[in-house]
Simulated scan of single mutants.
Amino acid sequence: MIGILIFPDFQLLDAAGPISVFEIAGRYARSNTPVRVMAAEPGPVKSTSGVEMLARKFGSPSALTTLIIAGGEGVDAAARNACTINFVKAVAARGTRVASVCSGTFVLAEAGLLDGKRATTHWQRTRQFLATYPKVKLEPDQIFVREGNIWSSAGITAGIDLALAMAAEDHGEAVVEKTARQLVLYHRRSGGQSQFSSLLELKAPTGRFGPLLTWAREHLNAKLTVEDLAERAGMSSRHFTRAFIAETGSTPSKAIERLRIEVARARVQSSSEAIERVAEVTGFRDPERMRRAFIRAFGQPPQSLRRAARAG
Rank of each mutant, 00 (worst) to 15 (best):
I69K: 06
T214F: 02
T225N: 11
T132V: 00
P301L: 05
R291H: 08
L67A: 05
P44N: 12
K57F: 09
V226M: 05
T65D: 15
R258M: 14
P252L: 08
S198I: 15
P34T: 08
I295G: 02
A25R: 01
R265W: 03
S272E: 15
L305D: 05
A82L: 13
R30D: 14
P205H: 08
L224W: 05
F22D: 01
S237W: 02
F298S: 04
S197I: 07
R258L: 13
W123Y: 15
E169H: 09
H187Y: 14
D286R: 11
I4F: 13
A55P: 09
T33N: 04
G104M: 08
L224F: 01
M290Q: 10
V51I: 15
A158W: 01
S190W: 01
Q182T: 15
V45S: 01
L213E: 10
L114K: 02
V107H: 11
S103W: 01
A109P: 07
L200Y: 07
R292W: 05
S271A: 05
K89Q: 15
D286E: 12
E218H: 10
W215D: 11
R30A: 14
M1G: 01
M38L: 15
A77L: 13
V175P: 02
R277A: 14
H171W: 15
R296F: 01
R181Q: 11
L108C: 06
G148L: 13
L305N: 05
P44M: 13
W123Q: 14
R289H: 14
Q269E: 15
T282G: 05
A222H: 11
F58C: 04
R232M: 05
A158T: 03
L212Y: 12
T84E: 06
A243P: 03
T179M: 07
F298K: 09
S153H: 00
I261G: 03
S62N: 10
H187L: 09
S236M: 03
E273H: 00
G159K: 06
E231I: 00
T248D: 00
G43F: 09
N86H: 14
E247T: 07
I68E: 02
R260M: 11
A243L: 12
A216Y: 05
R118L: 05
S47C: 10
A90L: 08
